[in-house]
Amino acid sequence: MGDRQAFESLYDATSAKLHAVCLSVLKDRPEAEETLQEVYIKVWQSAARYASNGLSPMTWLITIARNRAIDRLRARSSRPATAPTEAAATVASTEPGPESATIRAQERRLLDECLAQLAEQQAGAVRAVYLEGVTYADLAEREGKPINTVRSWLRRSLLRLKDCVSQ
């Protein structure tokens, strides 16, 4: 009947529950708050239509909130991107963050220090195979050594690198 005091009491008693309903559907707090406002506007405008048919008023309010949140969710998913720049802003960057870049730089520095502790020929073999993608056969040919000798260099070198890095 347009009683503002009654409406305020209704809001105080039900807003937390209805906000939780909207938030559970939308998963976005600002959007849930906007939806809750729309729910109370609808309740204010259509309170006269509420018919006590055995259901509690809270059930009626929850139904309105849930349906309004679902409508908003559907509208959100069917809405096209308004501008390419807005769409581009939502794509995650593939660049490493500052923390990842720092960790990578530290790991690279540690690897370079450990490679420096190897004999020059073995360090060169490790760099060629594991950093440049040279095959064992190509490395053996380039060094003029049997392939099993190159494999032994790499195995021993990797064990030494493992020990160095783990210290």
Results as ranks from 00 to 15, higher is better:
Leu73Ala: 11
Gln5Thr: 11
Arg74Thr: 04
Lys42Ile: 01
Ala65Trp: 03
Ala123Trp: 08
Val21Asn: 11
Leu139Phe: 14
Ala13Leu: 13
Leu118Tyr: 00
Glu38Tyr: 06
Glu107Pro: 07
Leu61His: 03
Arg68Asp: 04
Ala51Thr: 15
Leu131Gln: 15
Met58Gly: 11
Thr135Arg: 15
Gln5Trp: 08
Lys42Thr: 00
Gln106Cys: 07
Gln122Thr: 14
Arg160Asn: 13
Gly124Pro: 14
Gly124Lys: 05
Ala87Trp: 05
Ala105Phe: 11
Ala47Gly: 15
Pro96Ser: 02
Leu115Pro: 04
Glu95Asn: 04
Trp153Cys: 03
Arg76Ile: 07
Ser93Thr: 15
Arg108His: 13
Phe7Ser: 01
Tyr50Arg: 03
Thr14Tyr: 02
Ala89Trp: 00
Ser15Asp: 00
Trp60His: 07
Trp60Gln: 01
Arg66Gln: 05
Leu115Met: 10
Glu99Asp: 09
Thr63Trp: 08
Glu113Tyr: 04
Arg68Ala: 09
Ala140Leu: 06
Ser9Met: 07
Ala123Cys: 12
Thr63Gln: 13
Thr82Asn: 10
Lys27Asp: 07
Ala89Gln: 01
Leu10Tyr: 00
Ser52Arg: 14
Gln37Trp: 05
Asp28Tyr: 05
Leu154Arg: 08
Thr35Trp: 06
Tyr136Pro: 10
Ser46Lys: 15
Arg74Cys: 05
Ala89Tyr: 00
Leu158Cys: 07
Leu26Ser: 04
Trp44Glu: 03
Ala32Glu: 00
Glu107Gly: 08
Arg109Ala: 15
Leu115Glu: 02
Gln167Pro: 04
Leu115Cys: 06
Pro84Glu: 00
Ala123Val: 14
Glu34Ser: 05
Leu18Thr: 05
Arg4Ala: 06
Pro146Trp: 05
Ala87Asp: 03
Gln167Met: 03
Thr135Gly: 07
Phe7Tyr: 03
Ile62Asp: 02
Leu55Ile: 07
Arg160Cys: 13
Leu73Arg: 01
Glu31Pro: 05
Glu141Ala: 14
Met58Arg: 14
Gly2Glu: 08
Ala125Arg: 02
Asp28Ala: 13
Ile147Met: 09
Arg104Gln: 09
Met58Asn: 12
Ser157Tyr: 03
Thr82Trp: 04
Met58Cys: 12
Lys162Arg: 15
Val126Gln: 01
Leu111Gln: 00
Ala47Leu: 12
Leu110His: 04
Val43Met: 09
Thr94Tyr: 03
Ala101Gln: 14
Ala116Trp: 01
Glu86Val: 03
Tyr136Phe: 15
Ala119Glu: 13
Leu110Gln: 02
Tyr136Ser: 14
Val150Thr: 07
Pro57Asn: 09
Lys17Cys: 11
Tyr40Glu: 00
Thr85Gln: 15
Arg76Thr: 10
Glu95Leu: 10
Gln106Ser: 09
Trp60Leu: 14
Leu55Gln: 10
Gly54His: 04
Gln37Lys: 11
